[in-house]
């Protein structure tokens, strides 16, 4: 058990690397080693690689890792296995923020949009936590149900306004993750979420302690409120950055941390790198599959993850039922 992670973490990294390379060479336009280094079409192939394929692959890795880690963080902070940004009102609130910016300040640069979406996500998650304090939690499943209901209410508000203002199309874009429109210059926001994931890793011990509850955290000299605040800011900003760039990827933050927890446990110092890697890997795999299934068209990743993710989630739910919570 103790030597396993050292032996297999590099191995997993290599596996994800191979997936990433594969991802570079999947698509309509002909990009292969032959065209890259070969004759006349080389310029065009290099162009496609650098402007479209490489940014897309990087975006997949960054978004996948960041969303999976966000799920892990929320689960530790809320102390519930079944929460992630899309079952805690976080994602829906971020989308509400994006829509309000499109409506009121359509000229705002993407960083500003993300900042507004982050604030909305923070407020929405705060509201979720405030509701949780008022509701008797008889079962661990009540927590995500509350989050899904809150998300439903926020989505209803978003869509009501969007419908009247002719913004439904944009809202759908944020709701369903899709990497087909990623180009150089339109994904760089995701580096911010990568940096936030790094911050989460630096504070991993504190988050693990916070996951043991307020009393244990206080006993160990940790300011539980500050750690909560830091975690919620990371989750909100990451979710907003991902939604602003490629749209929401559902289930990712739920499945990956749960699978890693079963195998590696929840000491975040050890499990967070795994969650990030597996998140990136799952997103890469789903995206490649989505591009191959109905080639030359593609299925957006939001749909792919929805199908694969819900099946995996049901499995985890039934498996854990014996000792849920």
């Amino acid at each position: 058990m103790k030597t396993l992670p050292i032996a297999t973490l590099p191995l997993a990294t290599v596996g994800i690397g191979l997936l990433a390379v594969w991802s570079l060479f999947v698509g309509v336009s002909d990009v292969s080693l032959a065209t890259l280094f070969g004759g006349g079409a080389a310029d065009q192939a290099t162009q496609v690689l650098l402007v479209s394929r490489l940014p897309r692959t990087l975006a997949l890795i960054l978004a996948g890792a960041a969303m999976a880690v966000s799920g892990l963080l929320l689960q530790m902070l809320v102390r519930n296995r079944f929460v992630e940004p899309s079952t805690a009102g976080t994602a829906e609130s971020a989308i509400f923020g994006m829509m309000m910016v499109s409506l009121l300040a359509p000229e705002m640069p993407v960083f500003g949009r993300m900042a507004v979406a982050s604030l909305c996500a923070l407020a929405g998650t705060g509201l979720f936590l405030a509701i949780l304090r008022q509701v008797p939690l008889r079962s661990p499943l009540v927590v995500p149900l509350v989050g899904i209901m809150l998300g439903g209410v926020i989505t209803a508000m978003t869509e009501f306004i969007a419908y009247r203002q002719d913004l439904i199309q944009s809202v759908r874009g944020w709701e369903t993750g899709d990497f087909s429109a990623i180009l150089l210059g339109r994904y760089e926001l995701l580096w911010l979420s990568a940096a936030l994931t790094g911050v989460a890793y630096l504070a991993a011990d504190r988050f693990t302690v916070a996951g043991m509850g307020r009393d244990v955290a206080t006993n160990l000299g940790i300011d539980h409120r500050k750690v909560m605040a830091l975690g919620l800011v990371i989750v909100s900003m990451t979710t907003a950055a991902v939604i602003a760039t490629c749209g929401m990827i559902p289930f990712l933050g739920l499945i990956v941390p749960n699978v890693v927890s079963l195998v590696r446990g929840d000491n975040m110092r050890g499990s967070l790198p795994w969650v990030a890697l597996m998140g990136a890997g799952l997103v890469l795999a789903c995206d490649i599959a989505g591009r191959l299934v109905i080639h030359p068209y593609e299925i957006p990743i939001g749909t792919m993850m929805g199908v694969i993710g819900s099946a995996l989630f049901l499995y985890l739910l039934l498996r854990r039922n014996g000792h849920a919570g």
């Binding site: 296995r81 011990d205 693990t208 509850g213 009393d215 446990g265 000491n267 919570g325």
Partner: peptide, 30 residues
Amino acid sequence: PGEVLARRLSILRQDNQIMSRLTVEDLVAF
């Protein structure tokens, strides 16, 4: 400050519900 007290006084309440999957050694190390 909490961290100063944490080196002088420790407390264990009853009913410690922990959702996290930590090993015994991890927990003790914390």
